Each structure stands twice: as C-alpha cells, then as structure tokens.
Amino acid sequence: MDVKDCNGNILAEGDSVTLIKDLKVKGANVTLKRGTVVKSIHLTDDPEEIEGKVEKVKGLVLKTCFVKKA
C-alpha cells in the first residue's frame, strides 16, 4: 500500500511535505497557507491521509491530494 502525494510521488514515514493550497483547520481557527512545510509526517492506515505537525497545530491530519513532497 503506497501513499502518494498530488504528483504521484511515494511518501515515506518522516518525509517533509508542502501544502499546495490554503487549508482551514477545523476546530483550531487557523488557516494554513499554501507553501507551508509539514515536517516529519506520519503515515496512517488510510493511504489518502497523513499526520503531521505545524507550528500551531499538533496531530494534524491531511489529505494527500493537498500536499506535495518537499
């Protein structure tokens, strides 16, 4: 089960990814801007979702269609 970013690149545990569009974070009243780097991602059981940490938000779950490998 490969986890792929928006360009089809395979993502691995600990990779860094970049957001390709502005995303509103539910429950945190924060908007993450396009180009924000999410470091040391964690793969989940769902191949379309990854977990990561950004400066203000911990335990952030992102859809892989909104990220590209950094």
Rank of each mutant, 00 (worst) to 15 (best):
L23V: 15
L32N: 00
K58G: 13
I41M: 05
V67I: 15
R34V: 15
G59M: 11
L62T: 03
A28Q: 11
N9A: 11
K4P: 00
V3D: 01
S16M: 03
S40F: 14
E51A: 09
I10M: 08
E55D: 13
T44P: 09
G59C: 10
R34K: 13
K24H: 10
G27F: 04
K39Y: 13
V25T: 07
L32Q: 03
K53Y: 15
L60D: 02
G35A: 10
K39M: 06
K26W: 12
G8P: 01
D46N: 13
F66M: 11
L32M: 09
N7V: 05
G14L: 07
I20K: 02
M1W: 06
A28K: 14
K26D: 09
T36G: 02
A12F: 10
V3E: 00
V67Y: 11
K58D: 14
N29Q: 10
V25N: 02
N9G: 04
D22T: 11
K56R: 10
D46Y: 01
D15N: 08
T44S: 13
E51K: 09
K4T: 11
P47C: 13
G14N: 06
K39V: 07
K69G: 14
M1T: 13
V37T: 12
L23D: 00
K24S: 12
N7I: 07
V3A: 07
G35Y: 04
K33P: 05
K63Y: 11
L11C: 03
V37Q: 07
G59E: 05
S16F: 04
E55P: 09
D45C: 09
S16N: 10
L11A: 07
K53D: 15
G35E: 03
L32T: 00
G8F: 08
L11S: 00
D15A: 10
E13S: 08
L19P: 00
I10F: 06
V57R: 00
G8A: 06
H42F: 10
D22Y: 02
C65G: 12
L23S: 02
I10G: 05
K68I: 15
G27W: 04
K56H: 14
P47Y: 04
S40Q: 06
D46T: 07
H42N: 09
K69S: 14
I20W: 01
V67F: 12
A70H: 14
K58L: 13
D46S: 11
G52I: 04
T64L: 11
K63S: 14
V3S: 03
C65H: 12
C65Q: 13
T18V: 12
L32G: 02
S16W: 02
I10E: 10
K56L: 14
V61M: 14
G52R: 04
V17S: 02
K33S: 13
V57F: 08
K69F: 09
V67Q: 04
K68W: 03
D5Q: 02
D2C: 13
D15T: 08
G27Y: 04
V54Q: 01
D5M: 04
G14E: 05
